[in-house]
């Protein structure tokens, strides 16, 4: 379906010609974020919600991004789709989709990237669908605005196929959102997201407001369509327990930056960044019933972030240079990106 639009073909072409990706690796990242800064302007000055974020997303990879409230997760999701609303703005950085910088596109071009190339499964399953439109119409209007028109019969069939794909009965198509359960609504949202076969799916807390059983179902549906589509997924959330079971690589965000990004098993076996370590330690486990451990202290103000590492005042291992020098996110061990002065490269 996607290949019928002109834009996406251009994307492929530009991606092939692009030479910014390291020649050494044979697999090029589908999405690359470089030094992204997003601020919200307030009367007291800009709040730096995302401060120099960089990461790469490989084709077919499932990347988790976890962090507490205010760590910049949702801002990042909106920034990747260039949907930051005033008073927020993308201050600087690059978002490269197949080598094409999305931040330099016109608004018109960007509109065609949304859904066709990067789709979003939004937060808030209860309210993500227009209450006065039938499910069918909310699926079809996206195609129409991406320049795809089917006959009546074919549209119906494609809608039915999509709904079956995410595990819904085809007759859901003629229902209104309020006639569906929360889990069904989130499946519809997934169906919309995959309808143009995007290469990247951003799922921003796709399971919030759903009960635990339905959460698992939604995540497994998401994983299934991801495998079918061979799409890359960014799964955003704060439930690192749920994350650990559903992603390959996990990024831990803290105060608008990535603290650590590692393959998920290695991270849980041996967390490197002190924040990651304390976060994993704070997970409740059946062995230590009744004991909940938190991380002492509070997150720093993003209005006036500290000059050094944002975590230094809560970190038990903080060094002198942690208060003055921002640690860069570097590959301290093979495949393990950590932003911490405690580790020296390659050791």
């Amino acid at each position: 379906m996607r290949d019928t639009t002109v834009d996406t073909e251009q994307t492929h072409a530009e991606g092939v010609l692009d030479s910014t990706v390291e020649p050494s690796s044979d697999v090029k990242p589908i999405l690359e974020v470089r030094n992204l800064h997003v601020s919200y302007d307030t009367v007291r000055g800009p709040i730096q919600a995302v401060r120099g974020l960089s990461f790469q997303l490989m084709p077919n990879e499932v990347l988790g991004l976890a962090g507490e409230s205010g760590s910049g997760k949702s801002t990042l999701a909106l920034a990747l789709l260039r949907m930051i609303k005033s008073p927020g703005r993308i201050v600087e950085g690059e978002v490269l989709l197949d080598g094409r910088d999305l931040l330099s596109l016109s608004e018109r071009e960007m509109r065609h990237v949304r859904l066709a190339d990067i789709a979003m499964v939004a937060q808030g399953a209860m309210n993500s669908l227009n209450p006065v439109m039938r499910i069918r119409d909310q699926i079809i209007d996206a195609w129409t605005d991406h320049g795809i028109r089917y006959g009546r019969q074919e549209s119906e069939e494609r809608v039915a196929d999509l709904l079956r794909w995410v595990g819904l009965r085809p007759d859901v198509a003629r229902l209104y959102p309020h006639e569906l359960s929360g889990g069904m609504k989130q499946r519809v949202v997934i169906a919309i997201a995959i309808s143009l076969r995007p290469r990247v799916i951003i799922a921003d807390e796709p399971t919030s407001a759903l009960d635990v059983v339905v959460q698992r179902q939604i995540i497994s549906t998401l994983r299934r369509v991801q495998t079918d589509l061979q799409a890359a997924v960014i799964l955003i959330g704060h439930d690192i327990g749920l994350m650990a079971q559903s992603v390959q690589k996990l990024g831990i965000m803290y105060a608008g930056k990535v603290a650590e990004m590692s393959p998920v098993y290695e991270m849980f076996d041996e967390p490197m960044h002190p924040y990651t370590r304390m976060l994993i330690d704070s997970l409740p486990s059946p062995d230590q019933k009744g004991q909940l451990r938190g991380i002492p202290g509070i997150t720093p103000s993003l209005l006036d972030p500290p000059p050094g590492c944002a975590f230094n005042d809560r970190c038990p291992y903080a060094l002198e240079r942690c208060t003055t020098e921002i640690p860069a996110l570097e590959e301290k061990r093979p495949n393990r990106m950590v932003a911490c002065h405690l580790f020296t490269e390659g050791q």
Partner: peptide, 10 residues
């Protein structure tokens, strides 16, 4: 949220 999603749908 449905207005946000509408925009994300392009």
């Amino acid at each position: 949220d449905y207005v946000t999603l509408a925009e994300a749908k392009g």
